[in-house]
Every structure is written in structure tokens, then in C-alpha cells.
């Protein structure tokens, strides 16, 4: 038996919004540690990994590890039936083929129960090593979203150059070129507005904006985004979900042929 309860449906709604454009089907792995999901997009260029820790839930019961195979589109549609302030309970039997989603209004006057058919999915899992990155940038998530969106008007890819004290995001295309320089904040009153740039060694890598724009669908989950970059390895774009977990995206770099 698996059953968990979150005080606000909003966070799970936003999490589904952050995933559904990138992946069509996925498996939620349920264990005593919480819920987790890992899935590559169909082109095997990017990967998303979600962790929602037990401690962040109101209640969490998992008698036996289970895998819940879901159609993301369906799950997102059902999640949309919840109001942001509703509390939400997810429930499934150990060998069941249904996931129950129960939404309760804050005053307790309305309870909605939806049952979603689960899928038997065989999804390849990748082993992602823990590693040190050459550079880590933290910046307001809305700012990163804006940069990706704006540069998409110029080209298909963005070149990210990190040096001490700042980052350059640049794009080239048929209509012209663009370069956006973001400087590390000197002092910031509000942590969410801060830009920090940690550099062990400067890096310069190129990534497809199409995928970065998919990743920025997670912007409503967190005021800050972190970009971890090392030469010739995938970029990690991470959004922390306060008190609950994270959504991390991995994107393989582009190379000049």
C-alpha cells in the first residue's frame, strides 16, 4: 500500500507542468525515501530527474517499493482538476493498476476522487555519477527563462561562457547575433534576486535552446535556478522545490562537427 498527502496540490501541479512537454510517459518510483522519477526525452538528448522527499509530505506511507507507470499528459490533466489550495492524496495498492488522486478543499466541503490507469513501462534508467563541476551559476529562475526565450529569437543554440564574476549567453543566427552578459551580484538584499558564479575553471559550451526552453517550464517551482557546467559533460539545470525536493534536467552539449 502506498499513500501520501501533500498540503497543497499546487506544487505537484507545477511539477507536472515542468515535465509534460519533455516526456510523454514516465515511472514514479515510490520508496520509503519518497517519490522519484527519471526519464530521457524521446531523442535521448536530455534527461529529467525529480525527487520529492518523504519529509516534505504531510503523511507518507509506503509498505513496499512500487513503480507507478504513468502517461504524463493524463496525469497532468487530472492534476489540473485540483485547485491550488486543495490538499492532495495519492494512493495505490501494491499490485494495483490504478493510482487514486484525491483532492480536498481547504474547508473540507468538497472532496474529488479520480482514478488513473497505470501503465506497465520499461524505461531505461541512466546512472548519473556525482561529480564536481567546473562552474556553478545560481541566478533568478525568471531571468534565466527570459534569456533562453530572448535568444531563441536569434538562433537555435546558446553558447555559455563562464568566467570569474560573470556569464555570457550568446547566440548566432541568420538575422544577426546576440550576447547577454550577467554579472555576479555584489550585494543583494533578497536572496532570490542574487546571481552567484562559482568558477574552478572557465568553461565555454554550446547547448540547444529548444531543450533549455522546455526546462524553464519549471520556473514557477523555484525563485532560483542553478546551472552546473563542466567541459564536455551534460549541463545540469536544477530547480529546488522548497522543503520537498528538486527537479533536475541534464542536457548533452553540442559539438562542432
Amino acid at each position: 500500500m502506498f499513500e501520501c498527502r501533500l498540503p497543497k496540490a499546487e506544487v505537484l501541479k507545477k511539477t507536472m507542468d515542468a515535465l509534460k512537454d519533455l516526456i510523454k510517459e514516465a515511472v514514479w518510483d515510490v520508496s520509503a525515501q519518497g517519490l522519484s522519477l527519471q526519464s530521457m526525452d524521446s531523442s535521448h538528448v536530455s534527461l529529467v530527474q525529480v525527487t520529492l522527499r518523504t519529509e516534505g509530505f504531510d503523511t507518507f506511507r509506503c509498505d513496499k517499493n512500487i513503480a507507478l507507470g504513468v502517461n504524463m499528459d493524463t496525469m497532468q490533466k487530472l492534476m489540473k482538476c485540483a485547485s491550488n489550495d486543495d490538499n492532495i492524496t495519492l494512493k495505490s495498492e501494491d499490485n494495483g493498476d490504478l493510482l487514486s488522486l484525491i483532492f480536498e478543499s481547504p474547508n473540507g466541503e468538497k472532496t474529488s476522487e479520480y482514478e488513473m490507469k497505470l501503465m506497465d513501462l520499461d524505461i531505461e534508467q541512466l546512472g548519473i555519477p556525482d561529480q564536481e563541476y567546473s562552474c556553478t551559476i545560481k541566478m533568478p529562475s525568471g531571468e534565466f527563462q527570459r534569456i533562453c526565450r530572448d535568444l531563441s529569437n536569434i538562433g537555435e543554440s546558446v553558447n555559455i561562457t563562464v568566467v570569474k564574476g560573470g556569464v555570457d549567453f550568446s547566440a548566432k543566427g541568420d538575422i544577426g547575433n546576440a550576447k547577454i552578459h550577467v554579472t555576479e551580484s555584489s550585494n543583494v538584499d533578497n536572496e532570490k534576486d542574487a546571481v552567484t558564479v562559482e568558477v574552478n575553471e572557465p568553461v565555454n559550451l554550446t547547448f540547444a535552446l529548444r531543450y533549455l526552453n522546455f526546462f524553464t517550464k519549471a520556473t514557477p517551482l523555484s525563485g532560483q535556478v542553478s546551472l552546473s557546467i563542466s567541459p564536455d559533460v551534460p549541463l545540469v539545470v536544477a530547480y529546488e522545490i522548497e522543503d520537498l525536493g528538486h527537479v533536475k534536467y541534464f542536457l548533452a552539449p553540442k559539438i562542432e562537427n
Binding site: 530521457m40 531523442s43 535521448h44 538528448v45 536530455s46 534527461l47 531505461e124 534508467q125 541512466l126 546512472g127 548519473i128 555519477p129 543554440s157 554550446t206 540547444a208 559533460v233 551534460p234 541534464f250 548533452a252 552539449p253 553540442k254 559539438i255 562542432e256 562537427n257
Partner: peptide
């Protein structure tokens, strides 16, 4: 010409 690498090149399946 830029080529987008696949993630499988970096991470092993398990």
C-alpha cells in the same frame, strides 16, 4: 555545423 550529442554517451544504463 553543430551536432547534439546523446546523453547515453555520458551516462551508463543500469
Amino acid at each position: 555545423i553543430w551536432k547534439q550529442l546523446e546523453l547515453n554517451r555520458f551516462y551508463s544504463g543500469h
